[in-house]
Amino acid sequence: MDIQKTPENVVLSLRNVSMSYQARRGRVRAVSNVSFDLHAGETLALIGESGCGKSTLILGLIRQLSKTGVVDAGEVVYRYRDGRDTDILKLSDRQLREFLWRECSMVFQGALNSLNPVLRVSSMVYDTAQAHGMDTKEARDRALSLFEKVRLDPLRVFNAYPHEMSGGMRQRTLLALALLLRPQVVLMDEPTTAVDILTQRSIIEVLKQLRQELNFSVIFISHDLAVAAEIADTIATMYAGEIIEMGPVEEVFYRSRHAYTLGLLEAAPRLSAGSQELNSIPGSPPDLIQPPPGCKFHLRCRFASEECKTIQPTYTPATTISDHIVACHHTDEVLAAR
């Protein structure tokens, strides 16, 4: 995929974003100091073990965290098609409601439960359209054409109740619904996790095709590195609430500079191995209420040295030609170990 990464075509820009949950034991620092730019047409895949803050990050940036969650700091600047910039975190409730779905929509984790069981798909389409001033006729036509694009029987699905559809059909319905209002950015939280391997394939094919036709940007969370490698332009590895390595997909996957990314790749024996939980890195993720000092990964890292225990590594460009950045004290050793 040829996307241009220039400052002019950034659609979403996160700067030092931190988020946390209030829990009984204290504050869970689920996202710490995350910054990145998402460009027009770009697909960014967030990878990392479960519990590292991926869902929190994308829910928080559209302000949909559960009641106990807050965005503590940072900016999430969105650029409208007309070039206007706005900080999503500063929108009023009414402005936010207008913004949501029209500019940035989402496909949630757990497709099976994402549709209201007592309403027909058509009602959900009309509800969404009405909330954003799209007229009924246009909404219907648009929905039917999207259902066709995601390879569903348009009229049947339009008139169906959620329980009349299989998991894969629901997931594709959600994908179509996410594109109803032509958003610039679509957030996807493990859209292929709950479905079987064939359905997963078809969803990925559909997604690739839609992206080509409609040219939206995607932030994509996946457990499955093979899937991430296939559809992403950029990979961001998250560990304990931080992005610890980010760059073009070939760079990050074939020239990993962070021991954790390397660990993830090693845990998935071959890139085509399919979906399996990434749990083969020894040890477990750190406590997010009292994270360890220094590099948060040092307790599980085979490259760890004295400085890793005390000094938190800062982002450094991995190469001079690409925008591959990494926060590790031992980038060269990791690269050599590959």
């Binding site: 029209r102 209201n116 969404t128 909330a131």
Partner: peptide
């Protein structure tokens, strides 16, 4: 989940 999704769709509170 469908409540979170509906909220993210920008539906008015009354609906």
């Amino acid at each position: 989940d469908y409540i979170t999704v509906a909220r993210a769709r920008g539906l008015p509170e009354s609906r």
